[in-house]
Amino acid sequence: MSILLSNISKNFGQFAALHNVNLEIPEGELVALLGPSGCGKTTLLRIIAGLEAPDEGQVLLNGEDKTAEHVSHRGIGFVFQHYALFRHMTVFDNVAFGLRVKPKKERPSEAVIAKKVQSLLELVQLGWLADRFPDQLSGGQRQRIALARALAVEPNVLLLDEPFGALDASVRKDLRQWLRNLHQELHVTSIFVTHDQEEAMEVASQVVVLNQGQIEQQGAPAEIYDHPANAFVSKFIGQTNILNLEQNDMAWLVSAGISADNRHGAVAHIRPHNIDLEKASMSSDSPILLKDWQHLGATIRIELFNSQVKGGNSSLFAEMPNERFKQLNLNRGDKVVVNIKQAHWFN
């Protein structure tokens, strides 16, 4: 089901949680709502679900205005951050809940319900837990049961609030991949909220970046990473070096062969992997030294020091594959020449 939000605004007292948000999500996408805490992403998700009513604007599902429709009639599945499993019911009863509360005419027989619940538990690979209670499950298992419960009513839209937020790092990694695969299997339009840019990039087919109640950018992960629309997105997604030309950082660019003439803004954002190095000859007058480096696994992070930059950003971080670093054969304190392959300019 496609989702269209038009001019959504929401205030909590004096605080404007969302301001004039317009968003279109085509059918079948797996979308991440990404932003720092307090940016309004959870509020937006709850408005789509109908758990919260917008002060202004409309929510259209499949072209139909559902703004005034109660959450129980919207046909959405919602997975809560802390799972919200019914603690007094077994896993089986939790998953069966949505089917059992249907009006008598639409309610399937207990046999059909049992079959459906069992197949959903198989889908989330937890068929053997049907008789347990929620407090006997691990965090990752609860998460998957919550998902099975939401899927039981065959929602047109699946909404997940910080689905991996409360999990251990290792469980989180597995579940991300699992959610992505599940989405490819089911093709239900899904939106999840996260503050973790890595998670958004890894799982989602579309990323929506929110900040202070407004959408900063929407696009495929690669597009957002390679072509950030503004300084906020560039800073929020991935690592970046920020050079402010009004604060004496110009020396970096001059050293890297970018002159004052071909600048395109007041601030340059440079991704560490867009900075390449060469060893400078002993006689070179390059002001840049290799200060230190750290192993990050497959890549090396290098800290560069520029003696000509005064008062500004005297350190710059570059990243390169291990192989390349070995080839360069650099030591601490070596003079280097910097080559900036790509910069994003903002005002």
Partner: peptide, 25 residues
């Protein structure tokens, strides 16, 4: 009230939510 919100999102009416989710708790 997350459990109650969950029940509502699964299509339960207000009364069913009260009797099936709130009251047992």
């Amino acid at each position: 009230f997350e459990e109650e919100e969950a029940a509502l999102s699964l299509g339960a009416s207000g009364w069913k939510t009260f009797f099936l989710v709130t009251l047992p708790n």
